[in-house]
Design a protein around this nucleic acid. Sequence first.
DNA 1: TGTTCATCATTAGGTAACCTAACATTTAGG
DNA 2: CCTAAATGTTAGGTTACCTAATGATGAACA
Lengths: 154, 154
Amino acid sequence: MLGYLMMNRKSDEEELRELAGDFREALRHSVYLVRRLDAEGELSAAQLSTLKMLLDGGVRVGEIARNLGVRVPSATEQIIKLERAGLARREPDPDDSRAVRVVLTPAGRDAVDSANARRNAVMAGILSSLSEQDRQALAAALPVIGQINASLQD
Amino acid sequence: MLGYLMMNRKSDEEELRELAGDFREALRHSVYLVRRLDAEGELSAAQLSTLKMLLDGGVRVGEIARNLGVRVPSATEQIIKLERAGLARREPDPDDSRAVRVVLTPAGRDAVDSANARRNAVMAGILSSLSEQDRQALAAALPVIGQINASLQD
DNA sequence: TGTTCATCATTAGGTAACCTAACATTTAGG
DNA sequence: CCTAAATGTTAGGTTACCTAATGATGAACA
């Protein structure tokens, strides 16, 4: 009985390790999937990610960086590019003069909408070959993946 | 009845579009998860991916590129780095003198094993907080994601 | 059998997105 | 006050991708 418990515990670890490996493998390949969604004259994935955070109002640079999972200078760099493209604006934060609030311009909002729509359409095309069962399996896993990602936000 | 069918079809498209958006969002965040697995003096993700393909024997440069989802020059670049690090070797292909077969050195095999083990351990740690149900949902989706990725291989 | 066209890999040169370290500015706490 | 912490920006570097051009070999065919 003790032997059984020990075996069982070990088997759980084994399973977890295997799941980890498979998940890593899936994510590795998915990088190329994401890359496939890029288009020539459009927003880059990094720029789109940055702009999407601004949809609900101004966001400080540090918070953008934290949400993007990058360092502050990397966020600044993206923001400068967006500003030069007329898609975002930097404004002084009224509450803290050290800080900067980044806000979306109308052109920025349009750019998010269209880039988002195009990328979703391409992805939907890719997913359209899945069976109903497969779609359900994928849909069921997305909240779990989201939870994993959220737990890493620190 | 016709109305019902039309509504139903449209709802399907809607659902697919929504699934596509959610999947994109999950993958976007997962980039940071993958980045989190990187370690200081270890193989980079690109290098590890490249080496992993060689585990079962010599592979040609073009095939490595195709499997990695990158162009041939990018693969060559990685291979040269691995060669300089003593982890892989380039040999002339006996069947086709234009081609090059890339093979793993013993050191390369060790490097794959240890990098792989470390990364899997970190990932397993992250996944260990999931409920059994969540793990099953994730495990069920991985083959689907694998299928999506495989369908993109061209 | 030679010429031509395709294929395989490398080299050269450029870009995008990240990083750390050093800085200026402003806030907050003894 | 005056020092310490926090916020962004600038400067300089790295990595991993890309396209275009090149050299070398193989394959097709007149």
